[in-house]
């Protein structure tokens, strides 16, 4: 099982967090931890997602990127050391 940490930047739109969690589960990743907050000024949300899976993280990054309200998805390689 590989552990990964994602930094996801989103537009603060309806159910964006639910969409990310649904895709993460469906694509075969376990959620081990999460931090989420919204900048009410910019209306941009930031989500840190700690996940684990046998599958390569690129599969999940590509699927999260397909969601309409996503601005950016980064894999935090330093956090995985």
């Amino acid at each position: 099982m590989n552990n990964y940490q994602l930094m996801i930047s989103v537009d603060d739109k309806q159910v964006v967090l639910e969409r990310i969690l649904q895709v993460t589960r469906y694509r075969g990743f376990l959620i081990n931890g999460m931090n989420a907050k919204v900048n009410t000024g910019t209306k941009i949300g930031t989500i840190e997602l700690m996940v684990s899976s046998e599958r390569p993280i690129e599969l999940l990054v590509d699927q999260i990127n397909k969601l309409i309200d996503i601005k950016e998805v980064k894999v935090d390689h330093t956090a995985m050391q």
Partner: peptide, 8 residues
């Protein structure tokens, strides 16, 4: 057209 299909 779909990046997520590449290498899936």
């Amino acid at each position: 057209i779909d990046t997520a299909e590449i290498n899936k």
